[in-house]
Computed example of a mutant assay.
Amino acid sequence: MSSLAAEEEAITASEVLMQLEKAWTNEMLAPELLEAKPELVECMMEQLSEMEENIRRVKKGDFVASLHQLEIERIRFVVASYLRTRLKKIETHYVILLEKSQKLLSVDELAYAKEYARNIEKLFDGLALRRMPSNLRNLDGDKLAVMPNDDAYVFFRVLRRCNEVAAEEDEVPVDLERGSQHIMRYRPVASLLADNSILLL
């Protein structure tokens, strides 16, 4: 049983899937890497194994088994897309993540980011750095760093009322009502996304 299941025994597989789908949507649409949800992925992978085991027991050609197999493929796609999206962001922003935001990474993602950084350094060294004068051989992390675009606009739905949100620094703050939808720059709503007050669309 996963740590998520142990902590919340009442949570169902469909609720875990809903939470994972939310995390996937937010991850795809946010310009920065969001906090990892390894417990959701682990729980869903365990559920997939159980579903596949149950399908093996059903007669071949059974229509219900075919529907379950389609659902398994859909869930696998969500999990794979979520992980692929995170890896792409890690590869793009690895300098910033390793220097300032390691807490956003799962244990496996942190190991991957460190290995990726080592490989990039070896690549640069092999292609160019060793042929350059010694005073130019150091890789400057600040120059390699790719910052997420916090000024990108995002479209979102409000999941719970948010008070005093200012879209721009010089604008009057407004209250965002539950169920309303808005387009704003990412920076002022990043904290609302982190505490699950909004869902990106």
Rank of each mutant, 00 (worst) to 15 (best):
L199P: 07
G126A: 11
C43E: 09
G141Q: 04
S101H: 14
Y112S: 04
W24H: 11
A117V: 03
A6C: 07
E46F: 01
R57N: 12
R137Q: 09
M44T: 08
K89M: 06
N119V: 05
D142E: 15
M18I: 04
M45W: 15
Q181R: 11
K100L: 08
M184E: 02
R187A: 08
D150Q: 11
L104A: 05
R86M: 04
L110F: 10
I55V: 03
K143R: 04
E7W: 09
E35V: 03
L193S: 01
A6D: 14
F63E: 12
V165T: 03
K59E: 15
A30E: 00
E32V: 00
M28W: 09
Y112P: 06
S197L: 00
L200V: 03
A128Y: 08
D108G: 15
R118W: 14
L193N: 02
A65F: 04
A65H: 01
E35L: 05
E177M: 03
M44A: 11
R118K: 13
I55S: 08
E168F: 07
V158I: 03
S2M: 00
V41E: 08
G141E: 10
D195T: 07
N163F: 15
L200I: 05
I55F: 12
D151V: 07
I75G: 01
E115S: 14
G141L: 06
L201R: 13
L104P: 12
L87Q: 13
A5F: 13
L17F: 04
M147Y: 14
Q47P: 04
S3L: 13
E171G: 13
I90S: 09
C162L: 12
E50L: 14
R157P: 03
E9T: 08
S101M: 10
N119C: 09
A167M: 12
D151Q: 05
P31Q: 06
E7K: 11
N26W: 05
L129Y: 09
E32Q: 05
S2G: 01
L29E: 08
S180I: 02
N138Q: 11
S191H: 10
L40T: 02
H93M: 12
E9I: 10
L98W: 13
A13H: 09
R185Q: 09
A167N: 10
R130G: 08
E115Q: 15
V172Y: 10
L34D: 00
S49E: 14
R131E: 15
E53F: 00
Q102Y: 06
D175L: 06
E8D: 13
E73W: 10
Y116E: 07
C43M: 12
V64M: 12
R130K: 13
V95D: 06
F77K: 15
A167R: 14
E115F: 15
E168A: 12
F63G: 01
S191N: 11
M1Q: 11
R57P: 08
R76L: 06
V58E: 07
Q181C: 08
L110I: 03
M44D: 02
L144R: 13
K114C: 03
A80I: 08
A111W: 07
V64E: 11
L48M: 04
D175R: 00
M45F: 11
